[in-house]
Amino acid sequence: MTALKFDNLKNEGIENLPDRQRRNFLKLGFAITGVFAGGTILAVTSSVRRSFASSGDFLAQYPYKPHYGMLIRQDRCIDCERCKQACAKTNHVPAYGYRTDILERVRPDAEGQQREFIPVLCNHCNLPQCVRVCPTRATYKDRRNGIVMMNPKKCIGCLTCQMACPYNARYFNEEKMAVDKCDFCWEARLDRGGKLTACAAACPAQARIFGDLSRDDDPVHRVVHQIGRTVWVLRPEAGTKPNVFYTRG
């Protein structure tokens, strides 16, 4: 795909998404967004534009095929935590740890809705700090699919990766005697022919959309590549170029 072709893409909006509620969300959108966004969106908008606007160099930022990513539709999360349960069950995550979590933000002075849930997981960054700092290459960026993987055999348990991760996505698994983290269900599902991560499959509100950013007909790709839509990443200042994107509506 070329940049030119991308610019010619029809903006199909969120109509592509199997979502009956989009219009209502959009109507509501701006009123809430302004209040809820606080510093976060304002702070990231510029960086998102820079990294993900439709310029030529941006296309080079999906070096993997497939290039897995996730879109979180933040306002749809209701903290039912089915994703967490599905993740724990699928990936044998012990009770003391988690690969994905849901954070809660409350703005008592916000209009209409004062509460918001924010799902978080490994962002499978393009410039993963965890991979850079690991002394033994126990964690690495998989060349096949861009997933940040763990090789538990090599993990010495220095926990530097945990320190380096700006997303608190890692924990030490006492059973594996190694750091454990989200692998987009590669081992448990994708590598066995599965198409979705356990969390995305379990979500009753389609708050998590799993996709392949390298394909321009992919739902995640389409949403991320809409100039008019506010799409952001968490902690952009950490400079890790994450592959988990957030939006509302």
Binding site: P135, T136, K153, C155, G157
Partner: peptide
């Protein structure tokens, strides 16, 4: 260090 034994080995054969 949680697994010092692995450190001895992989620090040498799998350096980053």
């Amino acid at each position: 260090i949680k697994v010092p034994i692995r450190m001895m080995l992989y620090n040498i054969i799998s350096p980053n």
